[in-house]
Nucleic acid binder design. Structure first.
Lengths: 265, 265
DNA sequence: ATAAACAGTTTATTGCATACACAGTATATT
DNA sequence: AATATACTGTGTATGCAATAAACTGTTTAT
């Protein structure tokens, strides 16, 4: 009795989707037995989005896949936006690596970013859902907790830690978005050589002049812009390169900060 | 005559939207005079998207704003996707800063990222359009040229330069995306304190336990997670912080590379 | 003079989220 | 046990979207 009152109290303040994610939604007391469940709906939606993309996800498709009518879903989830939020929350429910105190922060951050990018790769639609607030759901917050763990043994204040978490998660999101866009383009029938610009390198070399594009011109002519000289797409390497630069930058910040502290003593 | 043949030859290979952006689309030879123009359509579409967001942009809205029927637009632009590409291309037509050889690369990169972020801020829908290939249109390539200019005086090969351009433009895009998402949420009626989580900090402090969230717990309790102790949103500062870390990382890479070259001599 | 190529319009197709009213069902209250 | 209540899943309706196809009228090349 008291538990329920507490739950209802907290439920009031939270948006419906967030409340559901914490299990704070009231169970119906009367009426016919439910034939569906929120979990079932969310899982079906994830399957559809994984296979066909977010644009192909409709309430009707979810419902008919389950053998029900569109409107039945609204008895479980108030809106499509709430469904998307619950989908995000569900796919963030990953196997978090155990804490290994002996591993240094650099490796931990690398691990966190890879783990995060993986979510985007397995569920390409993840990057299509706009961010409308800081993470507020259980598994999303667990991801934040994991990100913060990478900074546990570094002498930074909470705001600096949050800034670094933002930088790392942002980098992962950006990598995930690019990868998704490329994959979607391929799925839509575009060839890798059209995406890399290789198909158009001949046309580009006529259109891009040295006068108008002084700095692009040599890079285009050498073939580096459209990656003519590469057997395979090196975009994965680009991602690693960027991550290492970011980690170098964080390391530099730590060293500079240490120095400042020493100097002031 | 010969010019037209050359144009048609190049047009063949390029996707319709790209071809139009280079002015390679054939002008009609017969029939009634055109009452619209591609430029007019693209500008109208940009105005609508600026004010109401990309989701509110429909072919019907563009056409009726211009006083025509929906289908008239298809006489000028083959599809909505092509319209989006031309919108992207148009807003990349900015005043590029003059080359200042005495400015160091760090300032140049900072300037490039700010300039790029500005495009996302003035045209929030820019980040909503997926990337389906490397830049191939005149103004987009001018942006790449500008980005490459920041690396002109640094001893890097073309692939390293492209990796750095990708990192910088990616960071700008990510910042632009977050800012856009926040602004859209506010425009949709969400309060800043709901976005920052401040409205829910009470509920979160009950739901987030030390056992389950060992690293998040202290940050949440201190108020740093929902920025309780800040008079104003400091996310702008977070963006600057991230950019400086990236620049530090690039600088570190250059120093390490120099050292390697020295050592091998 | 005539045919071809074009302009803008009308109509039709297919798909979307979701508001609302409905008939039937399980439970709480009396 | 009777009844009111809260709930179930469904059918219908609204108002949007992109764009294909057919239509009428216009301009120009032949």
């Amino acid at each position: 009795m008291k538990e329920k009152e507490l739950k209802d109290y907290e439920l009031e303040g939270l948006p419906s989707g967030i409340a559901i994610s914490w299990g704070l939604n009231r169970q119906p007391q009367r009426g016919p037995k439910r034939e569906l469940s929120i979990e079932q709906i969310v899982e079906t939606a994830i399957n559809i989005a994984d296979k066909e993309g977010l644009a192909a996800l409709s309430m009707n498709k979810v419902a008919s896949t389950l053998g029900f009518t569109t409107m039945s879903l609204y008895r479980y989830i108030p809106s499509k936006d709430d469904l998307l939020l619950l989908m995000q929350e569900k796919v963030a429910d990953i196997d978090y690596p155990a804490d290994e105190p002996e591993v240094d922060w650099r490796d931990k951050m690398r691990q966190y970013v890879k783990l995060s990018i993986n979510v985007f790769q397995v569920h390409p639609w993840f990057a299509d859902i706009p961010i409308t607030s800081v993470p507020l759901t259980p598994n999303q917050l667990k991801m934040v907790d994991l990100a913060l763990r990478t900074t546990r043994n570094i002498p930074l204040n909470d705001f600096e830690k949050m800034s670094i978490v933002l930088l790392l998660s942002g980098y992962a999101r950006w990598c995930g978005t690019i990868m998704k866009d490329m994959n979607m383009a391929i799925q839509a029938g575009k060839s890798p050589s059209a995406i890399s610009g290789l198909d158009y390198s001949g046309a580009l070399k006529k259109l891009v002049t040295q006068e108008r594009y002084p700095d692009l011109y040599p890079v285009l002519m050498s073939g580096a812009y459209t990656e003519e000289n590469k057997e395979e797409n090196t975009i994965g390497d680009d991602f690693d390169f960027g991550l290492e630069r970011i980690l170098d930058g964080i390391e530099h910040y730590l060293l500079t900060k240490e120095k400042k502290v020493e100097d002031s003593n």
